[in-house]
């Protein structure tokens, strides 16, 4: 494999930068990789000899573990760095951290960072591939990709679907990545939530905005329900979590009133009883755990493609070759 001929370019910073075809090729590459995680011995030598650094400046369990499983199941050598245990707390700048990692001759960096644009900043400054595992309120591309794969698994397609992203869109990198990905694959996209949590000019991206959850459920075939962080209440964006649940919460009564079966996604971690009720999260509409399973396959696909693998060789690669 040769990273210089990656079909995605050097990095995966955001879905805004990808074409619809590139996004579909990631989803299609993930399909054969799903099966690896179902094996008794969950390991193939696709990325043998590759060094990957997981650089997490923000706390993360699900995303970090998902990347780590994906890397290990592809036989990469991985190192985890958490901000609290790194030289960052000693005042080192992001660019110096990057240069020092680079000096140790690594192949890829998976980075989560609290500042929007941090992934791009890093990608422009080091020759290794950079995978954005969430940057501030900008993008979280692998989350959107696993959402897309999960929707496609259950609905059979993306094109022509009506997908509504519900909740704190203003502060959500998941929302932005989903909007770009869904629009590029031909879905109709809406957002729904309190106007205080809607980004200015969001309609100019080509999405519809609802202010009432009832309207969104009436309209949508798929709901992607975002986590409402407690600090939003302290910031005055919503008066209380109880009120948020009453007005915007996704409940089974509301889903029962929908004209069609609605698929429900949530990127996690959930606040049960706030943005989503337990009977929805645990009920027949929910594909939340399928998302988590797909997350590993999507991240394997991204790692494989950025390392120079070809989508059409993925089936052969998982049989034991290095592609």
């Amino acid at each position: 494999m040769n990273p210089s001929v990656s079909s995605l370019g050097k990095d995966l910073v955001g879905l805004e930068d990808l074409s619809g075809d590139q996004i579909i090729s990631i989803l299609d590459t993930a399909e054969p990789f799903k099966e690896i995680s179902e094996r008794r011995i969950k390991k193939v030598p696709v990325l043998r000899g590759k060094t990957i650094v997981n650089l997490f400046f923000e706390a993360s369990t699900r995303t970090r573990v998902s990347f780590e499983f994906a890397e290990k199941r592809l036989s990469a050598d991985t190192v985890n760095i958490a901000a609290s245990g790194s030289s960052v707390v000693k005042g080192e700048t992001l660019v110096d951290t990057a240069r020092n990692l680079e000096a140790m001759r690594i192949d890829m960096v998976v980075m989560r960072h609290g500042s929007s644009g941090a992934a791009r900043f890093l990608a422009e400054r080091i020759p290794s591939s950079v995978i954005n595992a969430g940057d501030g309120q900008h993008e979280h591309p692998t989350q959107a990709l696993l959402d897309l794969l999960t929707i496609r698994d259950h609905m059979g397609r993306i094109e022509g679907l009506r997908v509504c992203i519900v909740g704190d869109v203003l502060h959500s990198r998941v929302a932005r990545s989903n909007i770009y990905g869904l629009l590029k694959l031909g879905a109709e996209v809406a957002v729904c939530g309190p106007p205080t949590l809607m980004p200015p000019a969001i309609q100019e991206l080509g999405v519809t905005a609802f202010t009432r959850i009832e309207e969104a459920i009436e309209w949508a075939g798929v709901l992607n329900v975002l986590r409402l962080q407690l600090e939003r209440m302290h910031g005055g964006f919503v008066p209380s979590l109880r009120e948020y649940n009453r007005i915007w919460g996704v409940s089974s009564q509301r889903l029962a009133a929908a004209p069609r079966d609605v698929l429900v996604l949530h990127p996690g971690p959930m606040n049960r009883g706030v943005e989503i009720d337990s009977d929805v999260a645990d009920g027949p509409h929910s594909v939340i755990l399928n998302q988590v399973t797909n997350g590993v396959a999507i991240r394997m696909a991204v790692l494989y493609l950025l390392a120079g693998g070809r989508q059409e060789s993925a089936e052969a690669a998982k049989q034991g070759g290095e592609a």
Partner: peptide, 15 residues
């Protein structure tokens, strides 16, 4: 500046 560019970049806007 608050507007579409800030929304796309995920940066807080100043109206």
């Amino acid at each position: 500046n608050e507007g579409l560019v800030a929304t796309r970049l995920g940066l807080k806007g100043k109206p």
